[in-house]
Nucleic acid binder design. Structure first.
Length: 659
DNA sequence: CTGGAGTGGGTATGCCAAGA
DNA sequence: TCTTGGCATACCCACTCCAG
C-alpha cells in the first residue's frame, strides 16, 4: 500500500521499494570454518529471531567475514594471492577471475604500508563472467590493533598532513612522528599482533557455502605471517627514518625547502607515514608520487605464478620463537556494525618454514624507489633526486591539500634552527660540511696568490690597439668607449696567454706545451690558429667538436652567470688565471645585455681559432685518461701517450687534418 | 716540521639518447 | 616506457712540493 501511494503521489516515487536491514552485533557468532555443522548452527543462531524460511533468498544479502589470527604473528595478505582468493570466493572460472583482478573500477589493491608484496583488496565483481556465487563485494584487509592500545589513552592523529610535516615542535621534531613512534614501541612491548580479515556481502542462500570452504591450504597460500616483533620494528624504523628526514629538512635553508624536489620528498614521507596505519591514499596525482615511492608494481596472478616468490631468499629472519604465550582467541572490534560472522581459524593451520624464516620477500620493505639526494653543499636539504621525480606544483598542492603560497608561508614562519646540527655521523659528513659552508657564506675568499700571471706583469701583453685585425670592436660595435675596448682586449690577450701558461705539467717536470720564442708571453692568436697541434704540444687528445661543444667550451671560458662558481676558486687552473678574474668582475658590474654584446664580440675572435683547450667543469686543462670521451683521439708518441692534455678542434675544420 | 697550494686521479650524480 | 651507457658536472682526496 505504501509503495502504491509513493508511486502515485511522489514525483520521484516511481519504482520505490523497501530496503530492510537487519543489524546484529559484530562477532555475534563464531564457528570453526572446517565444521559444516557448526557453521549451519551459527547461521541459524544469528537468524533465530527471523522467519528465515519466509525470506526470498535471492533478495537478501548477508555480510560475512572471517579473520585469520595467529598468536605472535602479524598476519597479512599477499598481493599475489588475490587471484586465488577471488577465484575461490566468487567460485569463478579462470577467465572470469582474471577479469576481476584487473586493477580498475571493480578491483583495487590496498597495499599494506606500501609493501608491494603485501596488501588486501576491494572488489566489486564484474557483471560479465560465470560465477558460482553471487557476491556484491569482497574486501580483504588487515587490522592493526596497536593504535587503539595507546598507553596514555591518547589517540594520535590518524593521518599526518603536509602542514604538520613542515611544522616541527620546539625540539625540531615532528609531533606526529613522536606519537606513532611511541605507539609502535608500546605495541612491541604489549606484544600486539595484526590479523587478516576478509569480508564479503553474499546472497543469503550461499552464506554457508561461502564461508566454510576456506581451507587450510588456501590460507597458507594467501597470507603471510611476520613475527610481530619484526612487524612492529619495521613500522618503528620507517617512522623513525621518515621523522629524521623531515627533521633534517626542517633545519635547512627555507629557500631550498621550497623547491619542488624537497617538497616532493616531504610529500612522499607523509604518504609513507600514513600508509603505516591506513591504506595508502589513492587520489589524483598519486600515480606520479607512487612512481618513486613504490619499488615495484604487482598484479594478482594466475595460480601457476602465485608461488613465484617462494624460491627467493628470505630477507626477514624470524627472531626467537615466542612459544605458546598469547592465546588470544578472537577480536571484539566494533566497526561497521554489520552482521559479521567471525570465523576462527585454528592456529595450527599456519605452518612456518622449519628454518625459522618467513616465507616472504616483502619488496619495498625499507624505503622508497627514487634516489634521495640527502644533502650537499649546493642544497643542504634532503630531496628527491631529479632523475625521476617530476612532480608538478598542481600535484604538490593537491596532495598536500594546501596552496603553494600557504606552504611557503608556513615554511617562512618556521623558527630558524636554534642550533646547527654538525653532522649525523660519518655517513652524513657531506651534509654537515655543506651546512657549515652555507653558514660561512659571508666570509671573503682569500686573495689569489697568483698575481704574477696577471697580464699587467707581461709587457708584451699590454694592449696594442693597433695590432692588426685581432682587436675587439672591429665590426659595428664601435659605440663602446675606448677604455672598454682596451679592457676586453686585455682579457682576450691574457686568455690566450693564460691558457698556454697553465697547460698541465707532469709531476716529473715533463712539459706538454711548446712555447714560441719569447715564452708564454709571446703566445697570440697565431699559436692556436693551426691544425698542426703537434707543433704546439708534445702530445694531446682531441675532440673534433660539433658547434654545440665548441660553444659550450666557450661559455665555460666566459661564463655570464654572475653566480656561476667554478670549483675551487684557487684550484685546478681556473682560479689562477687573470682573465677569469677580470671577466667575472665585468659580469658582476655590467648589465646583462652589455655583457652579452661584449661576449658576442669575443666569440667572433674565438671562432677564428683552430683549436683551444677542452675545459672541464673543475679544471682548465684536463688530462685524465678515463675522463676522456671515447670519441677523443690521441696524438702522441711514447711516454707522452699517457695523460695527454685535452684539446678541442674548431668545428669549422676537418678532423682528419689535425696533426 | 707543518700546512697550504698544486696536481692528478676518484666518485656520485645528472642528463640525454639509444636500446630493450 | 624503462633501462643503460656515454659523457659531463661538481665535488673529494692522496700525494708532493715548498715557503715560512
Amino acid at each position: 500500500l505504501l509503495i502504491e501511494k509513493c508511486e502515485e503521489d511522489l514525483s520521484f516515487g516511481k519504482g520505490a521499494f523497501f530496503l530492510h536491514q537487519y543489524r546484529g552485533m559484530k562477532a555475534t557468532t563464531t564457528h570453526n570454518p572446517n565444521n559444516e555443522e557448526e557453521a549451519r548452527n551459527a547461521l541459524k543462531d544469528l537468524f533465530q529471531d527471523m522467519h528465515i524460511s519466509m525470506l526470498e533468498d535471492a533478495k537478501w544479502w548477508v555480510d560475512v567475514g572471517m579473520e585469520v589470527h595467529v598468536p605472535g604473528k602479524a598476519v597479512l595478505w599477499r598481493v599475489d594471492s588475490h587471484f586465488a582468493l577471488i577465484q575461490h570466493f566468487l567460485d569463478a572460472d579462470e577467465a572470469t577471475a582474471a577479469r576481476n583482478v584487473k586493477e580498475g573500477q571493480c578491483y583495487c589493491v590496498d597495499l599494506t604500508a606500501h609493501l608491494t608484496a603485501l596488501g588486501g583488496f576491494r572488489l566489486r565483481p564484474t557483471k560479465v563472467g560465470t560465477f558460482g556465487h553471487r557476491v556484491a563485494y569482497v574486501q580483504a584487509y588487515t587490522t592493526d590493533k596497536a593504535l587503539t592500545y595507546h598507553p596514555d589513552g591518547k589517540t594520535h592523529a590518524k593521518n599526518i598532513t603536509m602542514k604538520e610535516a613542515i611544522r616541527p615542535n620546539s625540539e625540531g621534531s615532528i609531533p606526529y612522528v613522536e606519537q606513532v613512534y611511541h605507539a609502535y614501541s608500546s605495541a612491541l612491548e604489549k606484544k600486539l599482533t595484526a590479523a587478516s580479515r576478509i569480508e564479503m556481502r553474499v546472497e543469503l542462500q550461499y552464506a554457508q557455502a561461502d564461508l566454510h570452504m576456506f581451507s587450510p591450504a588456501l590460507i597458507k597460500d594467501t597470507v603471510v605471517c611476520i613475527p610481530r616483533r619484526v612487524w612492529w620494528t619495521f613500522k618503528l624504523m620507517r617512522a623513525t627514518a621518515a621523522g629524521l628526514l623531515l627533521k633534517w629538512q626542517n633545519e635547512g635553508p627555507k629557500s631550498l625547502r621550497k623547491e619542488k624536489n624537497a617538497l616532493g620528498l616531504t610529500l612522499a614521507l607523509v604518504h609513507l607515514l600514513n600508509a603505516l596505519n591506513n591504506r595508502p591514499y589513492a587520489g589524483q596525482g598519486i600515480p606520479e608520487l607512487y612512481r618513486f615511492i613504490l619499488p615495484l608494481t604487482y598484479y594478482a596472478m594466475p595460480p601457476e605464478r602465485v608461488r613465484i616468490y617462494a624460491d627467493e631468499p628470505t630477507i626477514l629472519p624470524e627472531p626467537e620463537r615466542e612459544g605458546e604465550e598469547e592465546e588470544e582467541e578472537e577480536d571484539e572490534d566494533e566497526d561497521e556494525g554489520n552482521d559479521d560472522e567471525v570465523v576462527e581459524v585454528d592456529p595450527e593451520v599456519i605452518q612456518f618454514a622449519d628454518d625459522g624464516s618467513v616465507p616472504i620477500v616483502a619488496n619495498g620493505l625499507f624505503f622508497i624507489r627514487a634516489p634521495i639526494r640527502l644533502a650537499d653543499k649546493a642544497a643542504p636539504v634532503p630531496r628527491l633526486s631529479n632523475t625521476r621525480a617530476k612532480i608538478g606544483w598542481d600535484v604538490v598542492e593537491k596532495l598536500s591539500e594546501a596552496r603553494k603560497d600557504t606552504i611557503f608561508a608556513m615554511i617562512d614562519k618556521t623558527q630558524p634552527p636554534g642550533e646547527v646540527r654538525r653532522g649525523w655521523g660519518a655517513s652524513n659528513k657531506k651534509f654537515a660540511r655543506g651546512w657549515m659552508r652555507n653558514m660561512d657564506e659571508g666570509d671573503q675568499p682569500e686573495p689569489s696568490r697568483f698575481n704574477h700571471i696577471n697580464p699587467a706583469n707581461y709587457p708584451a701583453v699590454r694592449l696594442t690597439q693597433h695590432d692588426g685585425g685581432s682587436d675587439m670592436g672591429t665590426d659595428d660595435e664601435d659605440e663602446d668607449e675606448p677604455d672598454i675596448k682596451e679592457l676586453l682586449n686585455t682579457i682576450w690577450r691574457s686568455m690566450l696567454i693564460n691558457v698556454a701558461y697553465k697547460c698541465v705539467t707532469r709531476r716529473n717536470g715533463d712539459k706538454w706545451i711548446k712555447f714560441p720564442h719569447g715564452g708564454s708571453a709571446a703566445v697570440k692568436e697565431e699559436f692556436y690558429s693551426t691544425l698542426d697541434v703537434s707543433s704546439r704540444l708534445q702530445g694531446f687528445r682531441y675532440v673534433a667538436s660539433d658547434y654545440r661543444q665548441w660553444d659550450d667550451n666557450f661559455h665555460r671560458m666566459f661564463p655570464t652567470d654572475p653566480n656561476h662558481k667554478m670549483y675551487g676558486e684557487k684550484k685546478q687552473g681556473w682560479g689562477q688565471v687573470s682573465w677569469i678574474k677580470d671577466w667575472r668582475r665585468l659580469v658582476q658590474d655590467w648589465p646583462t645585455d652589455k655583457i652579452e654584446k661584449v661576449k658576442r664580440q669575443i666569440k667572433k675572435q674565438f671562432d677564428n681559432l683552430s683549436w683551444m683547450v677542452m675545459t672541464r667543469s673543475d679544471r682548465l686543462w684536463d688530462s685524465r685518461e678515463d675522463g676522456a670521451a671515447k670519441s677523443m683521439k690521441l696524438v702522441a708518441r711514447g711516454e707522452m701517450r699517457k695523460n695527454a692534455p685535452h684539446v678541442i678542434i674548431n668545428p669549422k675544420y676537418r678532423a682528419k687534418d689535425v696533426k
